[in-house]
Simulated assay, not measured.
Amino acid sequence: MHFKTSTNQTPRYAQPGQDSVEIAVVLELKVLADVGLVGFPNAGKSTLLSVVSAAKPEIADYPFTTLVPNLGIVNYRDYKSFVMADIPGIIEGASDGKGLGLRFLRHIERNSILLFLVPADADDIKKEYEILLNELRNYNPELLDKERLLAISKCDLLDEELMDEIKKDLPEIPYTFISSVANMGITELKDMIWKKLEESNKDI
């Protein structure tokens, strides 16, 4: 290629080359998104992503439906948008390598905001949140420096009285109640996320 000219476009001669070095390289691509969805398997992460964006993640009623992260562009008001990542489900002990925990936890490092999803029918919403938080802490304590939000999913199962009861024992972070299937609380969720993104950008 070095000897190629307009009149000699396919030169048939070359200088002696140098000894080559052969190496094997493994490249790891971590997902980069504005918002990363964190939750146990079947918390409703993929369903939420499919509702708020054009992404088509696999959705089924068994654990670990999502084996690789999915990205979706979420449209917001006035032609604004942000990127949301559906991180495969985390289980207790993921930071010790249980399930495919370490593979999944790596992707969480590349999200600006972490949106924790805990289903309304969980035995103890606050405890589930704390288990997830503890897995992040054990994997990389710096993850706790990221902004955190909480969405209580599958809230079409609740009435106002039950919601009021749940609110009494929630973590002290911004939260909202949503139902992706019933399209309940989705606008409020987007508002909460956008507000937090703007606050984060001001701090940079």
Rank of each mutant, 00 (worst) to 15 (best):
E109G: 00
L149A: 11
L143G: 02
K80R: 14
K168Y: 12
L144Y: 13
R137L: 13
Y62P: 08
E128L: 09
K127N: 13
R137Y: 14
A54K: 15
G72T: 09
E109H: 12
D96G: 00
V83F: 07
L133F: 11
A122L: 09
I91G: 00
E92S: 08
D159R: 14
N75W: 14
E58D: 12
R103P: 00
G72K: 05
N70H: 15
P88A: 03
F177D: 10
L157Q: 13
I166C: 13
E58S: 13
D86G: 01
L162H: 15
L117R: 06
F82G: 05
G36S: 11
I108E: 00
I152T: 09
L100C: 03
D159I: 02
L162Q: 15
D78L: 10
T66L: 11
E165P: 02
A85M: 07
I59G: 12
L102R: 04
G97M: 05
A94M: 00
G101S: 00
I173Y: 11
S53F: 03
I91K: 01
I131V: 15
R148D: 03
A120I: 08
I73K: 15
L67P: 04
S112T: 14
K45D: 11
K98Q: 06
K127P: 03
N42V: 09
G36R: 00
K45T: 06
L114I: 12
T66I: 06
S81I: 01
L133K: 14
V51S: 08
E109Q: 14
F82E: 02
